[in-house]
């Protein structure tokens, strides 16, 4: 394993061009993208469809060769097989061999990573429990729902206990409860020191789990930085108060105005629809039990 000073991911001036239909002109999918992910960091890459997120990920995984620039994983060139020893990848909408069961799928990927016998069997048991597929472990994947396939995908990505997890839309097709589980899992992995590089359209999710965020548009990295740097509004101050009556609030408003400021909004904060759903789902689950 590489030393602590080596970045988990280092992409420098990455350019990826594809030939257009008649090969007269090259289409630039990624345009001089640079990013660095430290070990143990959770990095979110966001951008609209076709902005170059998946191509950047593919270059990092050695699935496409950069036109120019370089991609390194723990200091190793991403085009080399060695770079993939400590990497787990969950593609967007993963498809697996339908003839296999979840258990066989994990066994197959584990054996490809050189795992054998008891060590592999124990790891499979742990992962199946982690992604809540105990009841379906012996069923063929042909009969799995999209969300269940996503969970198998996540388990296969983690089979060899990778130090870097690359997740492309990890919660696509997963219900809110499953989505919350995946988010909790990312937090858990972060605590264990695993580096996570994720692409997602769900900005709220990225905001919740990522330390650093990169925004990519038309193949170019337009903004990058820590989440607090990117999302804080310097001219605003947020105060959250509990059990305050109207009279005290009026006094607060007065004090603010005396100080030259302006109270922009006040009222009861709203919880997200997702939080409400999770709460109800948990309640229903407890009642059913």
């Amino acid at each position: 394993m590489a030393g602590k000073e080596v970045a988990a991911v280092e992409i420098v001036d990455l350019v990826k061009e594809y030939p257009s239909s008649f090969r007269r002109k090259m289409y630039r999918a990624v345009d001089e993208v640079s990013l660095r992910i430290e070990q143990g960091e959770v990095y979110g890459l966001i951008g609209p469809n076709g902005s170059g997120k998946s191509t950047t990920m593919k270059a990092l995984l050695g699935l496409v060769a950069p036109t120019s620039g370089l991609c390194k994983v723990f200091g190793c060139d991403s085009m080399k097989v060695d770079a993939r020893q400590h990497v787990g990848f969950l593609p967007e909408n993963p498809y697996f061999y339908k003839h296999q069961t979840a258990e066989e799928t994990l066994k197959f990927y584990g054996r490809l990573c050189g795992m054998r016998g008891k060590q592999l069997a124990m790891r499979i048991d742990a992962l199946i429990e982690l992604v809540s597929l105990q009841d379906a472990r012996k069923r063929r994947l042909g009969g799995y729902s999209k969300g269940m396939l996503q969970r198998v995908g996540l388990a296969q990505a983690m089979i060899q206990e990778p130090q870097l997890l690359v997740l492309d839309e990890p919660t696509a097709g997963v219900d809110p409860v499953g989505s919350r589980q995946i988010r909790n899992l990312i937090f858990q992995l972060k605590e264990q020191g695993v580096t996570v590089f994720l692409c997602s359209h769900l900005l709220e999710q990225v905001q919740e789990v990522c330390d650093t965020v990169g925004i990519i548009f038309n193949g170019k990295m337009v903004q990058q930085g820590s989440l607090s740097e990117l999302t804080s509004v310097d001219s605003h101050t947020e105060i959250l108060v509990e059990d305050m009556d109207e009279a005290t609030l009026a006094k607060v408003r007065e004090v603010i105005e005396q100080g030259g400021g302006e109270l922009l909004a006040s009222g009861a904060p709203r919880r997200s629809l997702e939080n409400l759903f999770i709460e109800i789902a948990n309640q229903c689950g407890e009642e059913a039990r």
Partner: peptide, 8 residues
Amino acid sequence: YTILCKPV
């Protein structure tokens, strides 16, 4: 993708 992303 998932196969070649392993050390294969």
